[in-house]
């Protein structure tokens, strides 16, 4: 990956598009292609010069879920292409579809999370690095659901850690949210991997696997 990742930005609202461009440009990204509709988006996503995309779900021409469809389509053509989908609302269904479109390098956030600039930029980086970033609202709904095996085996603390992993948090920031040391977090995570029978593999992959198990995919 080049030092300055090149992104496609798709957002039909001019004000938000300008804001996001400014925000991303100021945080070490290059917004290589800016589009405001699904037709141009499809072409932009196939540009071999871009490293990832930040997409709005709802765009012209139909104002439904073309951003999401484009994200899934491009990941079918370019496996593992990093995509962060932004939306005015989140749906479990869409989260699942995104996660099912290939392992990792995917994010799904409410648009208002952009207001926390540092977290948002961090999320974009994690997605580009192959991680999974889910909106806390998606994670909260999953939390509310009755658990079944093998997640039943996790302790409440481990479940909290897993939820924060699903939101795309680093060990350091999980530690900070739960007021424990980074080492303790690492211990919990290893225990989660063991309980979910995840094979010994790259750390990033196992994190993604754990999140997928969490969402019962």
């Amino acid at each position: 990956m080049r030092p300055e990742p090149r992104l496609v930005l798709a957002e039909d609202n001019a004000l938000l598009r300008a804001g996001l461009t400014q925000l991303l440009a100021g945080s070490g990204f290059v917004v290589a292609r800016e589009v405001d509709n699904a037709v141009e988006l499809d072409a932009a996503l196939l540009d071999p010069e871009v490293d990832g995309a930040v997409l709005d779900v709802r765009m012209p021409p139909t104002f439904t879920d073309e951003g999401l469809r484009a994200a899934i389509a491009v990941r079918a053509q370019r496996p593992g292409f990093p995509v962060l989908v932004l939306s005015q609302y989140v749906e479990q269904l869409y989260a699942r579809e995104l996660l099912a479109s290939g392992e990792g390098a995917v994010g799904y956030l409410l648009k208002d999370r952009v207001s926390d600039v540092r977290q948002f930029v961090d999320g974009v980086r994690r997605v580009l690095d192959g991680g999974t970033v889910l909106d806390p609202e998606v994670v909260a709904t999953v939390m509310a659901r009755r658990r079944d095996e093998p997640l039943e085996r996790l302790t409440p603390r481990e479940r909290e850690v897993l939820a924060l992993m699903a939101e795309g948090k680093s060990n350091a920031s999980i530690g900070a949210s739960l007021h424990v040391t980074e080492k303790a977090v690492a211990k919990h995570i290893n225990s989660i991997f063991a309980k979910l029978d995840l094979p010994v593999d790259l750390e990033v992959n196992r994190r993604v696997q754990a999140v997928l198990a969490y969402l019962r995919l």
């Binding site: 709802r58 104002f63 439904t64 005015q88 479990q92 269904l93 869409y94 709904t141 659901r145």
Partner: peptide, 23 residues
């Protein structure tokens, strides 16, 4: 609900089902 506009009745009901605490 936006998902109703996006996916129609069956898609929206499937999305609704995923939000319920019980399967």
């Amino acid at each position: 609900p936006p998902v109703l506009a996006d996916r129609g009745l069956d898609g929206a009901i499937r999305a609704l089902a995923l939000d319920m605490a019980v399967p």
